[in-house]
Write a protein that binds this DNA or RNA. Structure first.
Lengths: 212, 212, 212, 212
DNA sequence: GATGAATGAGCATTCATTCAT
DNA sequence: GATGAATGAATGCTCATTCAT
């Protein structure tokens, strides 16, 4: 009945830490900040995670466990054309990206650090996973003659993730430029998500599709 | 012949600070680190810039002064078609991006901070400048009937900068995936530059061009 | 039996800080000096008091809590004549002043700063308290016809505290002038206390008493 | 014709330094503060005075040169009774004190430091000078049978200087208590000067005069 | 004579972590 | 299992002073 309170606490600390790290950066976020925001004792962080660094790793480990999953089922669905699979991949990516904005902001920060910690391993796996999925779809499309040859898949994924990152980081700018200040936050997010999805789809399509 | 040493020193500190901030982040880079790397006394940073924060601002101010310049001449060249202008814009962007990688890495970090400091103003101006240039070219192309209507220019610039950022941040990954470890750093950079340039051009072309 | 060690430590820091601040001044006393003298880690000062400034305030707060107390009982004693009450007030003042010399030296320093900090509030209350007590006694004496009208009570208190301050600050000079170098420190203090007490009493008497 | 500018500058620095030291204390006043306020280069202070400490000494030396002067002529005036001489002494003291408030505030601070620097020598001489003058007058009055025997002259001077110091340091308090906020600064100073003068005179008179 | 540049020492404070309880 | 107390190291910054010009 009674969940171990520690489990809850651990999860709560992870959540709070992710948000603070995402917002202010790893170094600029003190263990005190996290403890205060999470409403726990300062010593708890070392107690639960060993160190601030290990806490960071724990955040990434928690995310690594859910990489790919529903996507893989898409791949194996023989009913869908490669292009349909691609669209589902992109939709899935955008959906997941929007639902985990603070994590992706943090991931972007960590990518910039480029140290050799377990974190980079997780990030590497995530990128690899995206790459492999796309590769399979493209490969299938090429075999069927739907897609061009000579596709630079790493560059494509760079555009996918890069555009999402850039859009998300500068969304205030985007809002202002497009005079969308009147929209509620929720409506704006929805608008952005749709825009990004369509934008990526149109890029991928024209780059992959054989000209008739 | 003898440059004022002070000018050199100030500039040298700026250079070193930019690289360290880019590499390790603002908070994780200590004034002592910068002073040591630049071979100057710690107190010199306060002496020249007032504070660590002001030093950061000085880096951005130094870059804001050279925003857009050669590009503008391109715009006014009546000999060029809109598509040629677009290509020159993208070439110029990629060229500048590659020659100022550490600055762009730093800019990426600062964008993630999203505080309201003079830095954001400079970044805002840079983005706005890119946006305006592209807007003019697109507008001209649309008038001439070369380009489609309904182009989401902010999204396009997000793809431009986002792809560059993502590619640069994960270039080690890109190198590994594409089995380019044998290339010299210089050759790899050249390869990457060409790839990115072509990639962006093809994206922009297909998104802008009227289908025949 | 076992006092909380933390309480002791906090109190000990307060004590040491008061003495160093009194001796060398606030700014001239470093947190390091206090920590070293008190035998605690430097970080403890921030830990216990938040900052050097707050530590100073804590010293004054500790003293504000014991302002007036035994004196008030004197006031309510109907057995005593106003003049007797006055004598008791002055004796009490001198006694307290001598037993808290380092605090009064510090208070003198802080009075000279004249900033608007919580410290000034405490000092103000102390002065006001002295003033009010004296006012009551004088008022009672005037009603009974023992004391003159038109007594400038603030000036009287200035003489009381000013004389004590000046005597204490220049006690080495006083010792030398009066050739009291042979006296032990204790004996000298006793001598000084008696002298000051008599001196203040005679001043107050002649200024307050109705000439016959 | 042309006064050495340096002389002016030196004097100006002395003046500014005295005021800042008086207001904020020696340690809390930085050489930069003085240089800025005086409108001179930072290096000037070391250049003219050797060090910050020496600058402080220079301030006191400048004042030591004018100790006692007009007072001595009073002493030798055979027309005046001892009591008249005493009044003139007190008037002179109050007058000088009010015209050099910032110096006396600084002197009070230095007295509290009690280090063995040339400054203490100057302060010592000043006190000694006051003491000697008073001693002569009292001695003369005693010989003439006007004054009591057994006068504690050091205590008397402590009251004189102490009351002046205390009144000056807490003059804001005095103003408030006496509801004198409506007075102009000038009028208030005049009022205070008169009050202090009368107060000291009445104290000295009753303590010195033989009861009839 | 006068000064901008530069320095090393010191400042108060905050940090992540450890430890005794 | 959980925590307040405590620590040493590091932080950004200011200091009085010196020096080359």
């Amino acid at each position: 009945m009674t969940e171990h309170q520690s489990t809850d606490k651990r999860g709560h600390i992870l959540e709070v830490a992710q948000q603070l790290f995402a917002k202010n950066g790893f170094t600029a976020t003190s263990v005190r900040d996290i403890a205060k925001e999470a409403g726990v004792n300062i010593a708890m962080i070392s107690y639960y995670f060993g160190s601030k660094e290990k806490l960071l790793e724990a955040i990434f480990l928690a995310h690594s466990e859910v990489v790919g999953l529903q996507i893989k089922s898409v791949l194996q669905n023989d009913q869908l054309t490669p292009m349909e699979k691609l669209e589902k991949l992109l939709d899935g990516f955008v959906e997941k990206y929007f639902s985990q904005q603070s994590f992706h902001r943090l991931a972007q920060r960590m990518q910039l650090r480029n140290t050799d910690s377990p974190i980079m391993k997780v990030l590497h796996e995530m990128k690899q996973s995206n790459l492999d999925l796309l590769r399979q779809i493209v490969s299938e499309g090429q075999k069927k003659g739907d897609f061009k040859k000579n596709i630079d898949i790493p560059l494509l994924t760079a555009t996918m993730l890069g555009t999402a990152n850039q859009l998300m980081t500068t969304k205030a700018f985007y809002k202002e430029v497009n005079k969308l200040e009147s929209l509620s936050e929720e409506a704006f997010q929805k608008h952005l998500k749709k825009k990004l999805s369509l934008h990526l789809k149109s890029i991928f399509k024209v780059l992959l599709k054989h000209e008739p």
